[in-house]
Simulated scan of single mutants.
Amino acid sequence: MTASAVPAEPPGQQPEPGLRADAERNRERILAAARRLYATDGLGVSMASVAREAGVGKATLSRRFATREELITAVFADRMDAYATAVTEALADPDPWHGFARYIEAICAMQAADRGFAEVLTMTFPAAKALEESRAASYHGVVELIARAQGSGHLREDFTHQDLVILLMANAGVIAATGDAAPDSWHRLVGQLLRAFATPGTDAPPLPDAPAPTALYRAMVRLTRPGTQTP
């Protein structure tokens, strides 16, 4: 049989199992590396840094995730699901104000646990359709949550969904600024903001303790001298 007579590979034939397994392992290594880097350093991490952390070449990374948006969507898919779940659980609370306060505390805690996610909640990614669709679906629940809390008379009437975005931006800023020098500072911020959002006479959650002066000083040193390890 001549070379020209060799049967062609059937259309749509799947890669060999070994190749599929290698590709899946590389994908998981990339995702794990990106999660680590985004969680500690934020979304400014380069794709090249992710490839190095994962121990793969840039070409391998590009085959799995052609764009930064694709990688971000894959990394934070589970966290966006948790974000949506937080809205659903808050709406199910029979006490609208308690549900609202619990929701604020929950999403701010998600931000504190992952610096990358803190940024995801305060940025838009037009090219990341799945991520933006998930955000849009949660938005409608948040609007309803705000309306219920205001209807109960416990949330100020002038509070809007834009204020929630500002809150998340402020929380992300505090998290980035304090880092491991004063990591619990965000609790105090959220406690103070909930008191500001509540109508007079409303029972607000207990106010967390303020961070120690020495901890805030260390955080201020970090901001003045990026990369400095304070005692």
Rank of each mutant, 00 (worst) to 15 (best):
T124I: 02
L131A: 05
D22R: 13
F159R: 05
T85K: 12
R195A: 15
T60Y: 02
V75Y: 05
L31V: 12
D163I: 02
A21T: 13
H161C: 03
P17S: 08
W97N: 00
A182W: 02
A128P: 03
D81L: 02
T230F: 07
A210C: 03
E69T: 10
V75L: 10
A66D: 14
Q229V: 12
Q162N: 06
M1D: 08
A219T: 09
R27A: 09
A118T: 08
S49A: 15
G179E: 05
A177D: 10
R27P: 01
P206M: 06
L223R: 14
F65V: 09
M1P: 01
P208G: 06
P126F: 03
I107R: 00
D114K: 11
M123T: 14
A21W: 05
D78S: 11
E9P: 09
G153P: 05
P17M: 04
L19A: 13
A39C: 10
L207C: 04
A176Q: 03
A130S: 10
E69A: 14
E119V: 06
E69K: 01
H154W: 01
R52A: 11
A39N: 08
D180N: 10
I72K: 08
Y217H: 07
A34S: 14
V56P: 01
A136W: 02
R63T: 07
D41V: 06
A113G: 14
D180Q: 12
F117R: 04
E119D: 12
Q229I: 13
R52Y: 01
Q14V: 14
Q13K: 10
T67I: 08
A113Q: 12
S62E: 11
F65Q: 06
F159Y: 14
A136H: 10
E119Q: 15
S134R: 12
P213M: 02
A106M: 02
V221G: 02
L194G: 02
A84W: 00
G42A: 08
P205M: 02
M110K: 03
T228C: 12
L71E: 10
L61A: 05
